[in-house]
Structure formats: C-alpha cells, structure tokens
C-alpha cells in the first residue's frame, strides 16, 4: 500500500486537497452529532431535540454543496491523477453518503416526533431497548468509519468491512422480533411502524458507514468493492 509522504511541487494543491478533506470530516462530525441527537431523542422522548436535529440538516446540505464545489474546482484546475484522483473520488462519494446519513438522522428524528408528539406516550420498553441496543452498535460503527476517512488506513477498513455481516444479522433478528410483537405494541401499530422506520434508517446508516470504509480501500489500493456481498 502506498502512503502519501511527500507534498506536491505545487504546494497550493496540497492545501486544496487538505481543505476538501477537512470539509468532509467536518460534515461527518456534524452528521454524527445529528445521528446521536436523533437517537438521544428516541431514548428520552425529547421532541425538541428531535426538532433541532431536523433543523441542523440545512447546515449539512450547505456543507455538501460547498464540498462538491471544491471537488469540481479540483477536477477542473488540478486534473488529479493516481492517488490524488482516487482521494478526490473517494471524498466526493463520501460527501454523498454523509449527506444521506444526515437524511437518515432526520428520518429518525421525524419518527421520534411522531412517536411521542401525538399522545406523549412511550413505545414498549422491550422493542425500544432492542432498537436502542442496535443503535449503539450503528453509531459506534459510523464513528469508526469516520475515523477511517480521517486516517485512510486500508487495513482497518478491511477489518471494518469484515464486521458488516454481524450487524446485518442483528438487523434481521431485531426486525423479526418486532414483526412478531407488532400488533401487541402498547401504542398500537403506529408505534410499531415508526420503530420499523427507525430500524430501517439505522440499517441505512450502517450501510453508508460500510461505503465509507470501501472508499478508504479504493483510495489506498484502487480496488472497487461496491456491490460485492460481505
């Protein structure tokens, strides 16, 4: 694996690549805060927190547009090649995934608003705890995937991808249990539907995290792993 050790002869180019990288990491941090906020609101029933998560999405969208503009400028002005080309491609794709993770956080927050706003009731503890336990794992994985985009460590990325099978199994298990108990939810089928929507959003977040790890491998090795089953 090649490590980028030296700067470019044209130093401003290094600065532009670094700036884009920082912007993507900034976006990742903001999106991580959104996901945590949405899940915190789910746990506590804090609908104001859920509303803030939804509002924060505008900032994520702004960052997406800014980062995309930088990508276009880099292609136009620097015609990146080799590892630089793969870096810009990887960052460009990461931008899209991060924006979508932000959307998933908004979906969770919206479900939380629906869950709690109507009657100020709570979903059944059993289902909620199942979803929250899974959510912890998903948040940890999303955090790890952001660290990969920071370090570009392909070996860590490979280990990360190897862990995806386990999380997919967990989703299926929780979903099966929820389907079994669906009709018995304290709040009726409406609660069950919202919890399934949240579960689906979490599954998407985990999938975007896996994409980020794949971009790290693409950047480091030029290997495309998309559409290959884990």
């Amino acid at each position: 694996m090649k490590q980028i050790t030296e700067g470019h002869v044209l130093r401003r180019y290094d600065g532009e690549l670094r700036e884009l990288h920082y912007k993507v990491l900034e976006m990742g941090t903001l999106v991580l805060t959104q996901v945590r906020g949405a899940l915190g609101a789910l746990k506590s029933g804090d609908t104001e927190l859920a509303a803030r998560v939804i509002d924060d999405d505008d900032r994520v969208d702004d960052l997406e547009v800014e980062a995309d503009t930088e990508v276009v400028a880099l292609f136009a002005r620097r015609c990146p090649k080799g590892s630089d080309l793969r870096l810009v491609m990887a960052l460009s794709k990461a931008i899209t995934d991060l924006e979508r993770v932000g959307d998933e956080a908004v979906k969770i927050a919206s479900s939380v608003e629906r869950l709690y706003a109507v009657r100020g009731d709570r979903p059944s503890e059993v289902s909620l705890n199942e979803v929250l336990a899974l959510a912890d794992t998903v948040v940890r994985r999303f955090e790890s995937s952001l660290r990969l985009v920071d370090s570009w460590d392909a070996e860590d990325a490979q280990r990360f991808i190897a862990g995806q099978r386990e999380i997919a199994d967990k989703f299926h298990r929780v979903l099966a249990e929820m389907l079994d108990n669906g009709g018995d939810e304290a709040g009726g089928p409406g609660f069950a539907v919202n919890l399934v929507l949240i579960l689906k959003a979490l599954e998407r977040v985990a999938s975007h995290a896996e994409n980020l790890a794949e971009y790290v491998i693409y950047q480091a090795m030029g290997l495309v792993l998309r559409h290959h089953a884990v």
Binding site: E6, G7, H8, V9, P80, K81, G82, S83, L85, R86
Partner: peptide
C-alpha cells in the same frame, strides 16, 4: 497508469510530487 500506477516513481511523477 493515471488512476492507479503501481510504481511509486510513476505515482510521484503523475501526481506532480516529483520535480
């Protein structure tokens, strides 16, 4: 060669790291 060169010298040259 321009997306994934295999030799570090090629990489340095095409990415503008080599004078």
């Amino acid at each position: 060669i321009f997306t994934n060169p295999r030799h570090p010298l090629t990489e340095d040259y095409i990415t503008g790291r080599f004078g």
